[in-house]
């Protein structure tokens, strides 16, 4: 019996406790049929990538509101490559200044959503890029 489901890891790095955005996205994806693995707060890039590896996810969504996006995203991309997981789609959201977005996308991050993005946009992105 074939039972395909898209699996997504939602992670929240950084020392801050602002996990509402991550939880709203997690909930929204669940309501749209995705299996969401939620890791909780204060995740290091290594914890995120190892969790994604063990859970065999198709995509990783990272919420950053601590200003550490220029460290977190490139580090996650680097670790994914090292582990042979280049096929995992990485997207993110949070308080990321406009000018920081192009260099982050250049590291292989597929999309970055800034505050105020309608949830439907995230869903559209998922359907197009992940499944």
């Amino acid at each position: 019996m074939k039972q395909k489901k898209v699996r997504v890891l939602i992670a929240k790095p950084g020392l801050d406790g602002h996990d509402r955005g991550a939880k709203v996205v997690a909930r929204f994806l669940q309501e749209n049929g995705y299996e969401v693995i939620y890791t909780g707060l204060h995740q290091s890039p290594e914890q995120i990538v190892n969790a994604a590896l063990q859970e065999a996810v198709d995509a990783i969504g990272i919420s950053v509101l601590s200003g550490s996006h220029n460290y977190v995203f490139p580090e996650v991309m680097k670790l994914l490559k090292e582990r042979g997981m280049d096929d995992v789609v990485v997207f993110g959201g949070g308080t990321i200044p406009e000018e920081d977005i192009p260099p982050l996308l250049a590291t292989g991050v597929k999309a970055l959503f800034r505050p105020g993005t309608p949830l439907e946009e995230v869903l559209e992105f998922m359907r197009e890029n992940v499944g």
Binding site: A26, V36, Q47
Partner: peptide, 13 residues
């Protein structure tokens, strides 16, 4: 929805 939020990892990370 057939979806799920799997949160057991939160305690084991």
């Amino acid at each position: 929805s057939g979806g799920a939020i799997l949160g057991d990892r939160v305690r084991m990370q």
